[in-house]
Design a protein around this nucleic acid. Sequence first.
RNA 1: GCCCCCAUUGUCUAGUGGCCCAGGACGUGGCCCUCUCAAGGCCAAAACACCAGUUCGAAUCUGGUUGGGGGCACCA
Length: 498
Amino acid sequence: MNDRPTHVRVRFPPSPTGHMHLGSARTALYNYLLAKQTGGKFVFRIEDTDVKRYVPGAEEELINGLKWLGMEWDEGPDIGGPYGPYRQSERKEIYQQYAKQLIDTGHAYYCFCTPERLARVREEQQKRKEPPHYDGTCRRLSKEEAEARVNAGEAHVIRFKTPKEGSTTVHDHLRGDITVENRNLDDYILVKSDGWALYHLATMVDDHLMKISHVIRGSEWLPTFPLHGLIYRAFGWEEPVWIHLSVFLKPSGKGKMSKRESADLIKDGYSIFVKDLRELGYTPEGVVNWISLMGWSYDDHTEFFTLRDLVEKFSIDHLNPAPAAINFSKLDHFNGLHIRALDDRELAKRLLPFFLEKGIDADFETVLKIAPIAKERMATLDEVVPLAEFFFKDTVSPDPDSLVAKGLTAKESAEIAEKAVELLSPLPDMKAAGAEPVMRTYVDSSGFSAGQVFGIMREAVTGQHVSPPLFESMEIIGKDKVIQRLQKAAQLLRMVNQ
RNA sequence: GCCCCCAUUGUCUAGUGGCCCAGGACGUGGCCCUCUCAAGGCCAAAACACCAGUUCGAAUCUGGUUGGGGGCACCA
């Protein structure tokens, strides 16, 4: 608690190549939390050096996703900052300059091998059950020959000159030292033949230049982590604190979510994509609380957190290195908690669009009245529609058979509906405080149960088996409509054959 | 195949040698509350992968096994 770092500089550097998913949201969140709790900076950087994989609109989705979740960045492509540009596609020359430095210091070399030859070499290596590594042909070229060929305009890439002997040890904050034999590392390509730097170079250069002090990233980088350490050392730079987060597994815990499985999820009302979650009625509060606990924990009993709480309580010392299976029912739980924690005005504001989207002509004032009686019946915001759409209908159409109360005949049910009309009509309005005692007195004297009487009324007034509390609902609907609907129900019941 | 990482109930996890015949949460089952459905309250079933070792003592340390995951691109 006292040994927390201060003023860290962290970054979230996604590639605009697809939808923003839960894994990147969590990585962004942990970075954000660390920045905020230390008074540091959260840097947003776009890693778009691969034009072939660029997806239009992906960057905007990333921006919207982060903002929706409540994570604002301090430096980024849209707002700039002291270490820009924050888009890798605008930093090409910087990478080339550093690649050249690596060549000059003997840490990298030009390679003229064609993709075709590399594929052939790889194939043969695999046939011989050898690790598929670059065979070192161009590593043996003299500096003079290589430069002559470059100057002659021959196509080339730049490769890192990985040590052949010995081993490399790097340190991960939650996993400790990680050591690999250098022979298991490859002479990775740093700069492609089109002159663009690859992740291994571009990201290390950017992180150093942008003074990133803590790198929190996914565990898919673990295999090349030693290479990244080697690159930092080749430049003579001080390494950041490295933290590799576990991956998210599919709900069964067997492997990570495939494209197909992600698509299938939406049928069950779930998704691993942030933008879908929003449309499915999840709140940013619920999503943040949920993902914060997949790989991190506070203590042995506290689980409800707002983003503010997390900024205060999060700690990189309590991360869990094991992969975590996604548990959507827990998301429903957290979302419900946060819906109930919202004040009525805020909740109504968020509920309204879900009515409108379904073509229901809801108004804010009515939704504001509905919010308090519906909030504990929702796991997701969109569930308000089937629960409360009857408030906005001119008439409802209850099913005559459903109108008949359990254990009663249609005739008895009709009489109850008629009695309700008779007892409620004289009242000045439908305030629950007035209507409920009247009906309860009737229940007590009639011999029918509350469930029977109120059940008939619920079906009559809402047209639904399930609804918010009856009398509160009737108050919102208003006396005229309540009486009308009860009368109609009585008529329907009179027509049911007994 | 090779390399790396990981390993507590179905799932997320607490646990850093004695507070643990293992605590919390989701889910599941039961009960209570109750006008429906929820929410809420109470209760229950449910785990230290295995084998050695270190130690007076191990879920916690070490080694191995097994299992799971990730990576092996002129992608990130």
